[in-house]
Every structure is written in C-alpha cells, then in structure tokens.
Amino acid sequence: MNLLVFTKRVPATQEEELRIVDDGKAVDLSKVPFKVNDWDNYAVEEAVQIAEKTGGTVTAISIGDKESDEVLRRAIAMGAKDGFLIEKEEILHDPGVRAALVNNFLKKEGIAYDAIFTGVQSEDDQFAAVGGILAAKLGIPYASMVIGIDAVEKDHLIARRELEGGLQERVKITSPCVLAIQSGINEPRYVSIMGIRKASKVERKTYKGADYSENANNSIEVVRWVYPPKKGAATMLTGELDEVCKQLLGVLKEKGVYQ
C-alpha cells in the first residue's frame, strides 16, 4: 500500500506567552520554537508501519515555507521514502485553501496513492478540517479520529474511530481513502539527530504553491486576533514554596478530602 502523509511545522505555543501585534493583525511567533505537529507525528508513524507491513512506500507532504523542510526530513528519518514541499510563504488560515492546493497538486502531478493520512488536527489552528475537505474534493471516503487500523486489505481498511467517553466504532472504508489519525494510535519511533542528518541526503522536492492555486480562494477570513475573555478569577496561592504547599493542604482540608 502506497501512502501519502501530511506533516506540518507548527509553533510550540503550549508554554509560551503569546503577544498580539499590529493592532490585532498578527500574533508574534518570532520567539516561539517550532516543531512537528504532534498529530502528524502519529500519522507518519502509522503510515510507515503500514508500508512496512504491506510492502509499500510513504511519501511525506508539507505545505509551508522553506523551514517546513525540517518536518519532511524528520518523516524521512522515520521511514518515509521521500518528501514534497508545497511552498507557501504566508500562513493559510482557511483549511479549504490548503485542501484545494493539495487537490490541485495531486491531480496536476498525477500522484498515485492507496491512502492519505493526516493528523486529526494541527496544534496551531485546531481546525481538524483539511483531511475531510480534501477527501470530498477527491471523491473518496473519509474517516477521522482514527485510533486504530485493524486490517489492511486489497480494496479496503478496517479502522477504529474514537468517539466520546471511551467508546470507539469500527468502520470499513474502501481505498483509496483519507484517514485523519488520532494521537495515541501508536508509539512514534524516536528520531535521532544522526537519523535526521542521514535523511538530509534524501532528495526532497519543492513545488511552488502558486502553481496549484486554481480555486484555492479564501472562503473565510480572520478579521483580527484577540485574547480570550478572562472567565473566572482563580484565587492564586502565592509565597514561598513551603507556604504555598501549606495553603494548598489547607484548601484540601477545608473541602473535606484530606484530614
């Protein structure tokens, strides 16, 4: 089975203080470190495992600026055969535009595949949308929140989708298809610096995004960026560590869960 897997370079904002600049027109990410989107890491691993089992290949694809080459090298180090970069300088906030670019790219370049994997969502925009839009545009079936692939047959796969409250559903889906892979589906392999250095020797192809922008027009737009409204007012326990911990134990006693 030959697989395409999408991987995205995203800002690691979890522990960063973010500032909105230019009167709400932009978010300053200049001091934020970048990394591979966590969900894509699981998607790449899943694709590589399936290719290893069924004897196919994995091609990693990224949409982004030149720096995104870094996540392609990483995917190659994990076992992808090659990597394509669809180069776009600006951040694309409309998932419809990203999907249209990919749709045009796959058709124009005549790229063959049995399945396309994406991460369920990307950490930066949390849209969870590109895979589904792309599947519909390609006219192939789609399943998201895939937390297990139980069987890979000649013309179909059996996938397990994560629902709510610990429940899952098993679905049969014909190939080619698009699957959005959920985190936790596997244990992504460790990638060493040596591995990435070796992967750098594998050629990655760069394509100009502008060549695939037919019908890739924004259908939604960001008017401006704002900070989320402050909801509650947590009582902050402050002071020396010892003092803070005693206050914490005081709260636990007051709530009756600790004597």
Binding site: Q14, L18, V27, E123, Q126, I220, E221, V223, Y227, P228
Partner: peptide, 16 residues
C-alpha cells in the same frame, strides 16, 4: 470566535 495556539489566542472569523 475560534481558539488558536493552545487556546491562548482567539481568531475572529467571518465568511468571505
């Protein structure tokens, strides 16, 4: 309003 960046920023979106 839609959350971005680990829920630290909101994007104000509208259909174009």
């Amino acid at each position: 309003f839609k959350s971005y960046y680990s829920d630290k920023i909101f994007g104000e979106f509208k259909s174009s």
